[in-house]
């Protein structure tokens, strides 16, 4: 008997060899997703954007955030960030249209992220207010490593893509073909492996700066 058969048989006999009704299993699984408000934490503010920013900048997440009215203001916001850190205007830009279409004059751009990349700019598909998280789907315009190699990671997210809770992301994408990677990123890379004390910049970015564009009802 193959390992597969042996394991499945052992599972069935361990469960008492009762017949499984897939429809009933589905019903039970769905029932476990009912009444979600009773098992969710509270948001930190009333408005979604405010709650998101409050979480992103809270000590637990320890990232920085700013708001801009339109994506066209992003290069200027990036310029200010680089200036504050005294960094050169040499950046890896995610090859995604919402970023590539902007006016980056004055910047030296490349789209391949180097192992010791100093600054990378990306765009997240969603933000999550509950945790201050950013959600990326890997793909033709979203290399996975771009989120992990740079020391400074600057991420644009549209205000109207900020979801209240983690499970809202799952509900929003249920039934769709998943990408190779869904990366839910919350703050910079950190480790507590030496005596439990938190140090940022373990293997991934040491700095995460989130730029929120527009308002929840803007349709930019």
């Amino acid at each position: 008997m193959s390992a597969r058969e042996t394991i499945l048989n052992a599972v069935r006999s361990g469960l008492g060899n009762t017949a499984v009704d897939p429809a009933a299993v589905r019903r039970d699984a769905d029932a476990l997703l009912q009444d979600l408000p009773s098992i969710r934490p509270a948001l930190l503010a009333d408005g979604l954007v405010d709650a998101f920013i409050a979480r992103v900048t809270s000590p637990k997440v320890a990232a920085t955030a700013e708001r801009i009215a339109s994506a066209s203001e992003l290069p200027a916001a990036v310029g200010r960030y680089l200036e504050a850190f005294g960094l050169p205007a040499v950046v890896a830009l995610q090859p995604a249209a919402p970023l590539q279409d902007l006016d980056w004059s004055g910047f030296e751009l490349h789209d391949k992220v180097a192992p010791d990349e100093m600054i990378a700019i990306g765009v997240a598909r969603w933000g999550i207010a509950e945790t201050g998280s950013l959600v990326f789907h890997s793909g033709a315009d979203t290399p996975i490593l771009a989120n992990f190699l740079p020391l400074h990671h600057l991420v644009m997210v549209r205000a109207d893509t900020i979801l209240p809770f983690l499970d809202d992301y799952a509900a929003a994408t249920a039934g769709q073909r998943p990408p190779r990677n869904v990366n839910i990123v919350t703050g910079a890379s950190g480790t507590t492996d030496i005596e439990g004390s938190l140090v940022l910049g373990a293997h991934g970015p040491r700095f995460l700066h989130v730029v929120i564009v527009g308002t929840p009802d803007s349709s930019e």
Partner: peptide
């Protein structure tokens, strides 16, 4: 585990690199 609300990186890995993907 740690008292944080969520890990810094939560990643779902589904299948190998897809057509057109930059890496994976």
């Amino acid at each position: 585990a740690t008292g944080a609300d969520v890990t810094q990186y939560t990643t779902f890995h589904c299948g190998p690199k897809q057509t057109g993907d930059r890496d994976g």
